[in-house]
Simulated assay, not measured.
Amino acid sequence: MPCKILFSAENWSTWEAPLRTALDETGVAYDLVSDAAPETVDYVVYAPSSGLLDFTPFTSLKAVLSLWAGVEKIVGNETLQVPLARMVDPGLTEGMTEWVTGHVLRHHLGMDAHIRGLKGKWRKDVPPLARDRKVTILGLGALGADAARALKALNFDVAGWSRSPKTLDGIETFTGDDGLAEALRRAEILVLLLPLTPGTEDLLNADRLARLPKGAMIVNPGRGPLIDDTALLSALDSGQVGHATLDVFRVEPLPADHPFWLHPKVTVTPHIASETRPASASRVIAENVRRGEAGEPFVHLVDRSAGY
C-alpha cells in the first residue's frame, strides 16, 4: 500500500513536479496530495506558513518534514509528537555561502565607498589582504561551517563559535560564554548564522556589541532576533559598529518606518540570502520518506530540547 504524503506548504504547483521526480527515484510507492483526511496521512511536507497548527488528528503520522531550515515556529508545538526533520538543502547551503562570501568581501574591500561615489576625492584606502582580516562566524551548523570553509579558502583569518564544541580543519573554534567573548573580540567582520532559540535571542546585546573591535562590520543572514535592534542602532551611531548588513528582521517585511531603512550605516536585504530550492530540497524530502518506509533513521532530525 502506498504511503500518503500531504504537502502542507505554499506553492504546491511549484513543488509538485520536483517532489514526484525525487520520490520516483527512490522506488517508494507513494500518494502525494495537497489535501487528505488527516488520519490517512503518513508524512507531512510542511512549512509553518501553511496554517497547519494542530497535528492531533494525524493519528497515522510517521514524520513531519519541514521545508524550512529554521524550526523556531514549530518546535514548541505540543501537538506535534512525531519526528520533525528540518531542511538541510545543498542548494540552500550554496546560496547562503555565496551571499555571505559576497558581503564579507564587500566589507573587507570597502566597496561601498566607491559604489556610492567619492565625490571627487582621490582617496586611496587600500584594504589589507584577506589573511590579515579577522572574520568570526557565530553558528557552525551546516550553513556556518560551509561559509567558514569558503572564507578560509579565500585566505581570511576565520574563527567560529558554537554552543556545542565543533572542529573544523584550519579554523579556530570557540564555545561557551568565555569562548563567545573571545570570538567577538577578534571579529573585524562578524557573521551570524545561529538558529533562533531562547538561548540565542538578543545574543548580540549592548554588552556583546561593546566587545567587538571598534568599527566592526556585522552581517546577519541568520535570524533577526539574534540582535537587539536598539543596541545595534546605538552602536552604529557611536561608531562602535561600522556597518550592519541585515537580511533578517524581527518583523518581516521590515516595516516602512523602521529606522534601519534610512540609516546610513545599515544595508537592508529582503530575506534573500538563501532560499530552499525545490529541485535539491525535494531530494532531501524523498530520502527521508525512503528512510521512513525502510525503517531506517531519519536525517536532519530536530532536537526538541535544544530547539533546533
Results as ranks from 00 to 15, higher is better:
1 M>S: 14
8 S>K: 12
14 T>I: 10
14 T>E: 14
14 T>D: 12
15 W>A: 04
17 A>N: 15
26 T>G: 06
27 G>A: 02
28 V>F: 08
29 A>D: 15
31 D>S: 14
33 V>F: 09
35 D>E: 15
36 A>V: 02
40 T>C: 04
44 V>H: 09
48 P>H: 04
59 T>G: 04
60 S>F: 07
65 L>S: 04
65 L>W: 12
70 G>H: 12
70 G>K: 09
71 V>K: 05
73 K>P: 01
77 N>I: 03
85 A>F: 10
87 M>V: 02
88 V>W: 08
96 M>H: 11
98 E>F: 08
99 W>H: 13
101 T>C: 05
104 V>Q: 08
105 L>D: 08
106 R>Y: 15
107 H>L: 15
111 M>L: 15
112 D>F: 13
114 H>I: 10
116 R>M: 12
117 G>L: 03
124 K>Q: 11
133 R>C: 13
134 K>P: 06
134 K>L: 05
143 L>D: 05
144 G>C: 11
145 A>W: 04
151 L>R: 08
151 L>F: 07
152 K>A: 14
152 K>V: 00
152 K>N: 02
153 A>F: 03
158 V>R: 06
162 S>P: 08
163 R>A: 12
164 S>A: 04
164 S>H: 10
165 P>R: 01
168 L>N: 02
170 G>P: 01
173 T>N: 05
176 G>Y: 02
177 D>Y: 07
178 D>Y: 01
180 L>Y: 00
183 A>W: 01
184 L>D: 13
192 L>H: 11
194 L>S: 07
195 P>T: 01
195 P>E: 05
196 L>F: 06
199 G>R: 10
202 D>P: 00
203 L>P: 06
204 L>Y: 03
208 R>S: 00
209 L>E: 03
215 G>H: 08
219 V>M: 13
223 R>T: 05
224 G>W: 14
227 I>M: 10
227 I>K: 11
230 T>M: 02
234 S>T: 12
235 A>F: 13
236 L>W: 12
239 G>C: 11
241 V>F: 15
247 D>A: 10
249 F>T: 00
252 E>Q: 13
252 E>A: 12
252 E>N: 07
253 P>R: 09
254 L>P: 14
261 W>D: 13
262 L>M: 14
264 P>A: 13
268 V>A: 13
268 V>E: 14
268 V>I: 14
269 T>S: 15
273 A>L: 07
273 A>R: 11
274 S>C: 11
275 E>G: 04
278 P>I: 07
279 A>T: 14
280 S>E: 09
282 S>M: 09
284 V>D: 03
286 A>Y: 08
288 N>F: 06
289 V>M: 09
290 R>N: 03
291 R>N: 04
293 E>D: 03
294 A>C: 00
302 V>A: 00
305 S>K: 01
307 G>D: 01
